[in-house]
């Protein structure tokens, strides 16, 4: 039951988007988010949607895959839309109703905004391996090391966490089976009793996670790990022409969105 977690999943491929340097993609996602929040009117939203669909096509990520990523968020999206419908002042749909035309428009835009936000960030994780992502992050944040920010340690922790997600999921499955074999019931009862039933899973899981962490630390030290100082990387990152081209396109997109906002579209 825990096998279908798609959080941070990577789909290997060999498209332009896959080949972009992770640093470029990280910057572009930030640019994309800023641009998305510039969208003020229908034309602005249409522009972002077109760009998003274009990127999806370029990376050959299927819309159905993307929908799987959005699915867990549907409840929040629906709730946001609902609240926007009822809490926006303007001309009522019918005299006396709380629902306004502006509210409906706003609800649609909010839904679009959240979906686009998820799609854009998922495009990054779908096309970039977690290791490349954390490496890119480390290189990008490198200047912060001068301010004594532990950049290497932070990204190392992130990549370790990503490495252990499948291991811990497998372990959770195993513990759940073991507890079920002893008569534990996770499926029936009230919300509170089901939450309580999770305790016998969490305790062994935490105990073993700490034990793992301990062993891992010893294993890393045995392989001469001594922090980020003097460390080299086997896979060197280099910015190619396509990376610069992508960054220029990103900048143009952001500039265009700001202009649209100024025009109030």
């Amino acid at each position: 039951m825990l096998k279908n977690v798609t959080l941070g999943q990577y789909f290997p491929g060999d498209t332009v988007v896959h080949r972009l340097d992770p640093r470029t993609k990280l910057i572009l996602v930030i640019v994309y988010i800023i641009a998305l929040f510039q969208a003020a009117g229908w034309i602005g939203y249409a522009a972002v949607t077109v760009v998003t669909l274009l990127c999806m096509a370029l990376s050959q990520i299927k819309p159905s895959t993307m929908f799987k990523g959005v699915k867990p968020m549907l409840f929040i999206i629906a709730l946001t839309a609902l609240l926007n419908i009822f809490y926006t002042t303007g001309t009522p749909v019918r005299p006396g109703w709380i629902v306004t035309w502006e509210g409906i428009a706003r609800a649609f835009q909010m839904m679009l905004r959240i979906v686009l936000l998820i799609t854009g960030t998922f495009l990054l994780t779908y096309t970039t391996s977690p290791i490349a992502l954390t490496d890119g992050l480390e290189r990008l944040l490198n200047p912060l090391k001068k301010l004594h920010v532990p950049v290497h340690e932070m990204t190392m922790m992130m990549s370790m966490a990503l490495r252990f997600i499948p291991t811990l999921i497998a372990e959770t499955d195993k513990i759940m089976s073991a507890q079920k074999a002893r008569g534990a019931d996770f499926e029936t009862g009230s919300l509170i009793s089901r939450a309580k039933a999770l305790l016998p899973i969490l305790v062994p899981l935490f105990v073993s996670a700490f034990k793992r962490a301990d062993e891992l630390a010893v294993a890393m030290e045995s392989r001469c790990y001594h922090g980020g100082e003097g460390r080299t990387r086997m896979k060197q990152m280099h910015m190619a022409a396509r990376d610069y081209a992508a960054l220029v396109l990103g900048a143009l997109f952001l500039a265009g969105m700001i202009v649209l906002k100024r025009l109030g579209l």
Binding site: R163, T167, R212, L216, A219, C224, H226, T232, R233, K235
Partner: peptide, 26 residues
Amino acid sequence: NPDNQIVANVVEDDVAFAPENLGVEP
């Protein structure tokens, strides 16, 4: 425990871990 001594998500990245720590040329 083989699970608790592998540090990377890809086999070859894991094998590269020790030489990377030692600062060997890429």
